[in-house]
Design a protein around this nucleic acid. Structure first.
Lengths: 163, 163
DNA sequence: CCAAGTTATATAACGCGTTATATTTTTATC
DNA sequence: GATAAAAATATAACGCGTTATATAACTTGG
């Protein structure tokens, strides 16, 4: 059956990008499960931002991730509950809750940098590096490639041969 | 402040694609509001699929749009409630509910083909046509371009000079 | 021809983004 | 220095995708 979203091209670009993004997230999640990472794929950017920029407030995080503040409030709450983040009120401005990695959070990031992120990156790079042509053409080929061999299979086949 | 999702590149491709997709959908929604289209941007593909392929079952629609069946069940329910779709049980197999456009739905599609879709397409084309380079590079430029001048502004400026 | 399996759709619950609004703290102004 | 405006965060409600499971209709094998 014809893929309508693809066929409509420019008209459905938004739906299409969301759809591909969800596919990538879901494949990434499977890589993470296989490597026993107790997170949702979408939670990584938040932890990575704090690792990279140091302790951040909710608002700063929202800006760094380019998402809305309530989204960050909720995600940070979950990560705190899971033990990877702590919040403490800012000395001097009690409105601000500054988020830091816990020891456990830092340990997870350290392990991720060593083992997990390289695996994910390699799989995504594997699928994106060969793309060329117009934006739409690249989306077409990306979707085909994801269908043919999902990211988690690519990660699997890369195991034991790091770059 | 550094955009972390962008900075992480291949590692956050899923989050990034979803984020850009949401931006495109939201801009598209504004174009539609301005043209008094009483739909959500994400509902267009469903109607377009039926227009293009003829009356479809829920399952066929899910396949044509490459989304899951419960998503289609819900979306179709809303469109039926809004008066653009009707469902009738298939003669010969009562499990299947075949979805067709109502008169009102067909009228909306006709108007869309004439006025709405060209406006959206032109705006998206305007932003995508100039892109070149690697996939990541194109995403960078696409996000910058959306930020600089959102789709709804591009549509506005195109008014009155159809292609 | 009926029990068991399969298929199509519906429903429930959740993930994760959004907008709109409430609450709390700080800042500014008179 | 009280009061009004602004800023940071929290909460509520919704949009729209997902997975898991229930239900109803059809098909099939003995």
């Amino acid at each position: 059956m014809e893929d309508i979203v693809r066929a409509l091209g420019y008209l459905c670009l938004g739906s299409r990008l969301k759809r591909i993004g969800e596919q990538v997230q879901s494949d990434t999640q499977r890589i993470m499960e296989r490597l026993d990472v107790p997170l949702q794929a979408g939670q990584y950017p938040l932890l990575a931002a704090i690792d990279r920029l140091g302790p951040l407030s909710i608002g700063e995080l929202a800006e760094a991730l380019a998402v809305t503040q309530p989204g960050v409030t909720r995600a940070a709450g979950l990560l705190a509950e899971a033990g990877y983040l702590t919040a403490r009120k800012e000395k001097g401005d009690q409105r601000i809750r500054r988020l830091s990695l816990t020891q456990e959070g830092q340990a997870l990031i350290d392990r991720s940098k060593q083992d997990i992120w390289p695996a994910i990156e390699a799989a995504v790079r594997d699928i994106c590096d060969g793309l060329d042509g117009s934006f739409i053409a690249q989306l077409d080929r990306l979707e085909d490639a994801l269908q043919e061999k999902p990211l988690h299979r690519r990660a699997l086949e890369n195991e034991g041969r790091p770059s």
